[in-house]
């Protein structure tokens, strides 16, 4: 998915660059002083309308795919509690006591079944980003102190997943991670 977005971006960027180059060259070639518009701030209505419609379609397609609506109608097969702290993740099948955060040594989750992560933070804001075995983000949410965020996901690919913190949380932010396996 990420590569598809990169490709989309590169194509659009190339088109825009090309337009600017062509326009620049056309101006370089032009020798007639009188050509060109007196006031270019005119008659952009069609251009705006097309842009508006394109963005509208893009919004209509993407909004229903927002993570808040994912699997909302189903019941999770497995619940994992997550407490993030500077600079660790505690994960447990049972609720985590914030005064004494203790988690499981290993977390195993079923493939192709709904898993619910109940993510909170014990101190500052943290990120909870799940990386696939091939090191691509598959899902993420934030861990905010005082709140619980519920992230639901079905893992298709079995293997070892890594969780990285994606909200800057201090000195050891870059080493804050944990893993779980999907079978």
């Amino acid at each position: 998915m990420q590569y598809a977005l990169l490709l989309l971006f590169l194509v659009l960027a190339a088109v825009i660059a090309l337009v600017f180059i062509i326009v620049y060259l056309s101006s370089k070639k032009s020798d007639d002083e009188l050509k060109g518009m007196a006031n270019p701030l005119q008659k952009r209505f069609w251009f705006l309308l097309i842009l508006f419609v394109c963005l509208g379609i893009f919004a209509l397609i993407t909004i229903p795919r927002s993570p808040y609506y994912l699997f909302a109608k189903e019941q999770p097969a497995k619940v994992v509690h997550v407490a993030a702290g500077q600079f660790f993740f505690t994960m447990s099948y049972k609720a985590i006591n914030p005064d004494k955060p203790e988690g499981e040594m290993t977390i195993e989750l079923p493939a192709n079944q709904l898993v619910e992560f109940r993510v909170t933070s014990l101190d500052v804001n943290h990120g909870f980003a799940i990386y696939s075995p091939s090191k691509q983000i598959v899902a993420q949410t934030q861990a905010m102190p005082g709140y619980v965020n519920l992230l639901r996901w079905k893992f298709e690919e079995p293997g070892t997943y890594t969780v990285h913190c994606l909200e800057y949380c201090g000195m050891a932010h870059q080493v804050m991670q944990t893993t779980f396996t999907v079978k």
């Binding site: 032009s30 007639d32 050509k35 060109g36 270019p40």
Partner: peptide
């Protein structure tokens, strides 16, 4: 506007 202002304009 900028594109139109420049296009084929000296």
């Amino acid at each position: 506007s900028v594109i139109v202002a420049v296009y084929r304009t000296k």
